[in-house]
Write a protein that binds this DNA or RNA. Structure first.
Lengths: 336, 336
DNA sequence: GTGAAAGCGCTAACAA
DNA sequence: TTGTTAGCGCTTTCAC
C-alpha cells in the first residue's frame, strides 16, 4: 500500500492524500473524511523515508554517548529526550564505548542518515584531540558538544567547569582543617582528569598548601575496581589518607566500598568529597558532599542550543559553562 | 553533492559509482580507485534515505523502553546493542515513560520509518492489555517482546519467570526459619507485581504457611519514596517485619535506606531478599540475596531471536523463559 | 566492465 | 479545492 494506490481507491490524486496526511493545504471536509477512513481501513502507514527524501530533511537528532550505563550520561540523555519530544524530534543513540573510532563511525552513519543535528558527548582523550578535530572538519551538520570542552573546536556546547568544581571540593576540605589532601582521579590521558587535578592544584596554591606528588593518584574513571584495589591496599597497609577527593562516580563508589569493609566512618574517621551527584546514593541514604553538574539540566540546555542552531545557522557560537553546585552533606567533616 | 554529480566528475555512470559505494558487482580496479579518490576529495556521503527507499529496507532496529534510567532496562539495552553492532544494525530508542500511549505512538513512528524490526519492553498494565493487543494487531514488523510475558500476544520473546523467581526468594526465607514473611510489591495493576505475589503465595501454600492479608503490601515499582514512606512508618511504630521480600530494585533501595536510618542490620536484625541484581549495590559492598534475571544476556538473546525472525518470517514462535538465578549473599539470615 | 533508465513513495510548485 | 508532474538520491535490471 502506498499513497498512489490509496489515492486511486479514494478516486482522488496523490496530492490530495498528501495534504490530508500532513494536514496542510485546503481539502474539502468530505474528501478529507473519506481519505482518513480509507487510511484507517487499509491501515496505511506513510513511508517516512520517502517523505524525508522528498523534503530533504529528517526529524531525528543523533546522540553519541560514551557509555549508556553511566548514570551521569543517562541523566544527560533524559534531559535531551524531554526537549526532543517537546520539539517533535526523534532521538537516535550511539554508544561509542569510550572508543574515538566508534565515535567517528557513529558520526558518519548519522551523516548518511541526514539527521537534523547531533549531540556529542565525546570520549576523546588528551592525545586524540587532533583525530577528533580532523573527523569533524567538514561535518556540515549542526552539532552541540556536551560535558567536555575541547579546545579549538568551534561548536556550541554545554560544558562542566571541572577546574572550578575541583577547586570547590578542595576548598571544602581545606576549610575543614585539612592540609594533606589526596585526590584519586582518572587516567593521565583523560581531559576531565587533567582539569580536575588542575582545580585541586589551584586551590592548594591559593591556600598555601604544599602539594606532595603522591597525593595525586591516577586510577581509572571507567571502572570501580582500579580505585578499589588501590584503596584496599592503602587500608590494609594502614596508610589511608585523612581526606580524599573522589574524582568521579566510580571512584566514589570504590571509596564507599572500602570504607565500609574496613569500618571507616565517612565524616568521622575520614573526610570524603566527590564529583557527580547520583540519585541512587541518596536513595540509599549515603551522604557524600559533592559537586553537582546537574546533568539533566545540561542535556536540556544542550538540546535548546541545538534548536537555536537549527533555526539560525549563522548565529554566534554559544558555549555555556555550567557553574558547579556544591552540595554539603557532612562527609567533609572529620572527628579530631 | 550526490551520486550523479560524482559520476559526472568521474566521467562514469551512476551505476558504476553505486557499485563502488556498495562494493558490489564488478568494477575495473582503475575506475574504482578514481571514484574512491573523488569521493574522498569531495567528502561525499551517500544518502541513506534514498538508499533505503530504493532498497525498500533499512538497517535500523527500534527499541522501546519504559524508562531509560532504570538500571535493569539499561542492561537489557546494552545486551541488545552489542548484538546489533555485531550484525551491522543501528538502534533507535524510544522511552515510553511508562505510558502505554507513548508506547503505541513509538510503534507508529517506527513503522513509518520502515525499521527492520523491534524490541518491545512493554510498560503495559493488567487493565491495558487489550489496548496493546489491538495496537499491535497488524503491525507487520517483526517484534520481539522482552521481560514481560503477555498472554495471547503471539510474538517471540525473552521473558523472566517472575512466579518462579518469587517462589525461590520466598523459599529461601522459609528455609531460614521464617513463617511470617512480608512482600512489598508494585501497584495492583502491575503484571509483574501480580506474578511476584503469585510465586510468593505458591511457596507459602507448598510449605503450609498461612498467609495473612496484611503481609502483601502494594507500593510502587517506579519510585523509591512510596515504599520508603511505608517502611519508615513501620519502623517508627516498631512494627517492622522480621522477613521482607523487596519486590523490585526501588523497593530494595527503600528497605536499605530505612534499615540504615534505623540502624537495623540486614542479615542480623532482619532478613531481606530482593528482586533485581544491580551492579552498584555490589560495588558499594551492600550484600543482598537476590534473584537475578541477567538482563544483559536477555537483551542479547532477544536480539538473536529478532535476527532469526528476520531470516525466516515463518519459523515457529519462540518464547524463551529465563530461569531465574538465586544469588545467596547472607541477607536472608537473621540472629535468633 | 559499464551505462541507460525505470522505479522506490513521497512532496510541492504550478496549473486548472 | 484538486490534479499533474518533476523531482528527492539512490538501486537494480537489462542491454551493450
Amino acid at each position: 500500500m502506498n499513497i498512489r494506490k490509496l489515492a486511486n481507491i479514494c478516486g482522488v490524486s496523490v496530492a490530495t492524500v498528501s495534504r490530508v496526511i500532513n494536514d496542510k493545504g485546503n481539502v474539502k471536509e468530505e474528501t478529507k473524511e473519506k481519505i482518513l477512513k480509507t487510511i484507517e481501513e487499509f491501515d496505511f502507514v506513510p513511508n517516512a523515508l520517502a517523505r524525508n527524501l522528498s523534503r530533504n530533511e529528517t526529524d531525528v537528532i543523533g546522540v553519541i554517548v560514551p557509555d549508556v550505563s553511566n548514570a551521569f550520561y543517562i541523566e544527560l540523555i533524559k534531559g535531551a529526550m524531554i526537549e526532543a519530544s517537546n520539539n517533535n524530534l526523534n532521538v537516535v543513540f550511539f554508544n561509542s564505548q569510550g572508543d574515538i573510532k566508534n565515535e567517528l563511525k557513529a558520526m558518519k552513519m548519522l551523516r548518511e542518515q541526514r539527521i537534523r543535528g547531533m549531540l556529542l558527548i565525546s570520549c576523546v582523550k588528551k592525545n586524540e584531540v587532533d583525530v577528533l578535530r580532523k573527523g569533524v572538519k567538514n561535518l556540515n551538520i549542526p552539532m552541540i558538544l556536551l560535558n567536555k570542552h575541547i579546545e579549538n573546536l568551534n561548536y556550541d556546547g554545554v560544558f562542566t567547569d571541572d577546574v572550578m568544581a575541583s577547586y570547590l571540593l578542595t576548598e571544602v576540605l581545606i576549610n575543614n582543617g585539612h592540609k594533606d589532601i589526596t585526590i584519586l582521579t582518572g587516567s593521565e590521558n583523560s581531559i576531565v582528569a587533567y582539569n580536575r587535578v588542575k582545580g585541586y592544584e589551584n586551590a592548594c596554591k591559593d591556600y598555601g598548601i604544599n602539594m606532595k606528588k603522591e597525593n595525586i593518584i591516577y586510577t581509572n574513571f571507567n571502572d570501580v575496581e582500579t580505585a578499589y584495589n588501590i584503596l584496599r591496599k592503602m587500608a590494609e597497609e594502614k596508610r589511608m589518607p585523612k581526606a580524599i577527593i573522589a574524582g568521579n562516580l566510580n571512584i566514589n563508589l570504590a571509596c564507599i566500598k572500602v570504607f565500609s569493609e574496613f569500618n571507616i566512618k565517612i565524616g568521622e574517621d575520614i573526610s570524603l568529597v566527590a564529583f557527580d551527584d547520583i540519585k541512587i546514593l541518596n536513595e540509599l541514604g549515603i551522604k557524600v558532599t559533592v559537586v553537582s553538574q546537574n546533568p539533566n539540566d545540561m542535556g536540556r540546555q544542550a538540546f535548546k542550543l541545538l534548536i537555536n542552531r537549527l533555526k539560525d545557522k549563522n548565529s554566534p557560537i554559544n558555549k555555556i559553562h555550567v557553574v558547579p553546585e556544591l552540595l554539603i552533606r557532612g562527609s567533609e567533616k572529620i572527628k579530631k
